[in-house]
Amino acid sequence: MGADTITRTNRVTALAPWLLVLPATMAVFALLAVPVGSTLAESFSNPLGVFENYRRFFASDYNRMVVLRSFWIAFATTAIALAAGFFAAYLIAGSGPRTKRILILLSVFPLLTGVVVRSFGWMVILGRNGILNNALIELGLINAPLSLLFNQGAVLVGMVYLFLPLMILSLVGVLETIDQDLYSAAESLGSSPFGVFRQVTFPLALPGMVVGSILVFTGSLATFVTPRLLGGERQMTLATLLHEKAIISFDWEAANTIATIMIVLTALSLVALGMLAKRLSPKGRA
């Protein structure tokens, strides 16, 4: 073994980590960075100008409305999921171990099926011959079936159902870390049960609420199947508009533009919500 062999071995050893990581890095690059990058690049390469595609997109009333609607649906979904999820999580966190396990299983159960099946399930429930209408007619509350599908309500119901497990898990997680004695202490010091919720439970649950909200908000912005199945053309969101442009109209310029807009909006939402999280997090933890 000469000095040459030693330096060569050293060089190989030094390079080894990089070499081992190389296949995965290349895969990520090739399968993620390149396609996404080219989509972004495409949207900026209109011969009439770098931002021509975007100018054209936002010039249309219809498109602007789709963007606003997407935000609105994401916001409403998050708000409803927060309220319903908090209620559920509060019950779960306060249950005995066996009940808790069962309740968590039930909450997470929907995640076992795909999003298509879950959204489709709501079509069965809300349809004119669906379970809900049949029940209402059976009970004599209405005479003719109600048209419950293909409007914003149906979309919101489907979306909330889709994301509720995420929210519940985030909230249960944070609620369980709250020492039960804190509730007792607050009550013994004179706080009514609602006061305990307002002054102890809510502030300490805030980080979990923010995490859950981030997950649900960004998820709802991008969801395609639910608005497609339950909303139809009248409830066009960015995701379904993207599908329309790409797969049905074959308007690739518009599709790339929308894709880029969705990426940017999601990133901005993440940043904004993250900043909100920081502002609201309690300083000390016992």
Binding site: R128, S147, L149, F150, R234, I248
Partner: peptide, 19 residues
């Protein structure tokens, strides 16, 4: 108009479910 559709199967579905 309840809904616009893009494929024949979608319409078949809307009829058969009574929508």
């Amino acid at each position: 108009i309840l809904k616009t559709y893009n494929s024949g199967s979608e319409l078949t579905n809307l009829f058969t479910t009574g929508e």
